[in-house]
Simulated assay, not measured.
Amino acid sequence: MVERRGLGYWLTHLGLILGVAIICFPIWLAFVASTVTAPEIVRPPMPLLPGSHMIENYRQAIFSGVNVPVWRMLFNSAVMALGITFGKIVISLLSAFAVVYFRFPGRPVFFWLIFLTLMLPVEVRIVPTYEIVAGLGLLNSYTGLILPLIASATATFLFRQFFLTIPDELAEAARVDGAGPMRFFWDILLPMSRTNIAALFVILFIYGWNQYLWPLLVTTNPQMNTVVMGIRQMLPSGDDIANWPVIMATAMLAMLPPVLVVILMQNLFVRGLTESDK
């Protein structure tokens, strides 16, 4: 079969290519800025091709940084993002499982109480949350960075809706075969939820990686800074001179982990959003 490709086909692809180019152009400029010297950045016109100082600038960013080496901030961000991601997924899976498969008084009330927490984002409850974390002595710790952010009403709601699509006959068959609640959860529900878990993993990892306000409040030790905080602290204040190549190199390094997660998990991510995988 011969497919006819008219003018509309090529115009559509031209529009897509143009859109991608517009989106990626600032990222390309940041990469170019991370490979040149500081005078070359401020001297117009700004170069559009990579320079010869890439290894030097990235080495300085990773091992020296400005206040803290970037490798340390990347490690802190990774621990925080992974902790938030796994914590949210585990708690949401268990809470959705309890709401759907267990019969107890006030079950709908408990679910809607969980769902109503969407009305109270971190920014609204930031002061009492900070007081609790400080009172427990969790400032400047990974526990203080992760624990207040691991509850997720959105993930609970998504898993609940998925569990409701699973036929009741499956649970009855597992019960007849002698499987207990956790055996049913571990051997049946969890494998069936893998694409949903993958989709949420991508979303929650990026959410945790991009956190700025909460780490800014609970960390006073520079060694606990995340990379998003580090980029902000590298920007000059007053008459200070910014080391823009190092700042741009740090920004590129900060973008790398979320991009890799999306690329490596894109197939599962798309399937988790478009399929029920039953």
Score class of each variant (00 low, 15 high):
Tyr142Gln: 08
Thr143Asn: 09
Thr143Ile: 13
Gly144Pro: 08
Leu145Ser: 05
Ile146Phe: 00
Ile146Gln: 02
Ile146Pro: 00
Ile146His: 02
Leu147Pro: 01
Leu147Ala: 08
Leu149Val: 06
Ile150Ser: 00
Ser152Arg: 01
Ser152Met: 02
Ala153Thr: 06
Ala153Trp: 01
Ala155Asp: 03
Ala155Ile: 04
Ala155Asn: 05
Thr156Gly: 04
Phe157Val: 07
Phe157Pro: 06
Phe157Leu: 10
Phe157His: 06
Leu158Phe: 04
Leu158Ala: 06
Phe159Asp: 05
Arg160Thr: 14
Gln161Lys: 12
Thr165Cys: 13
Thr165Phe: 11
Ile166Leu: 12
Pro167Cys: 12
Pro167Leu: 12
Asp168Tyr: 15
Asp168Met: 15
Asp168Ile: 14
Glu169Met: 09
Glu169Ser: 14
Leu170Ile: 15
Leu170Phe: 13
Leu170Thr: 15
Leu170His: 11
Ala171Thr: 11
Glu172Asn: 07
Ala173Pro: 12
Ala173Tyr: 11
Ala174Pro: 07
Ala174Phe: 06
Ala174Asn: 07
Val176Trp: 09
Val176Met: 14
Gly178Trp: 10
Gly180Met: 03
Arg183Gly: 07
Phe184Val: 08
Phe185Tyr: 04
Phe185Pro: 05
Phe185Cys: 04
Trp186Met: 10
Trp186Asp: 15
Asp187Trp: 14
Asp187Tyr: 14
Ile188His: 10
Leu189Ser: 13
Leu190Asp: 09
Leu190Glu: 08
Leu190Pro: 09
Met192Lys: 13
Met192Tyr: 15
Ser193Asn: 12
Ser193His: 08
Thr195Tyr: 13
Ile197Ser: 04
Ile197Thr: 05
Ile197Pro: 05
Ala199Asn: 07
Ala199Leu: 05
Leu200Val: 00
Phe201Tyr: 02
Phe201Ser: 01
Phe201Met: 03
Val202Thr: 02
Val202Asp: 00
Val202Pro: 02
Ile203Phe: 14
Ile203Gln: 08
Ile203Asp: 09
Ile203Trp: 13
Phe205Arg: 00
Ile206Ala: 07
Tyr207Met: 06
Gly208Phe: 00
Trp209Pro: 03
Trp209Phe: 03
Asn210Tyr: 06
Gln211His: 12
Tyr212Lys: 03
Leu213Gly: 07
Leu213Cys: 08
Leu213Ala: 11
Trp214Arg: 04
Pro215Arg: 01
Pro215Ile: 01
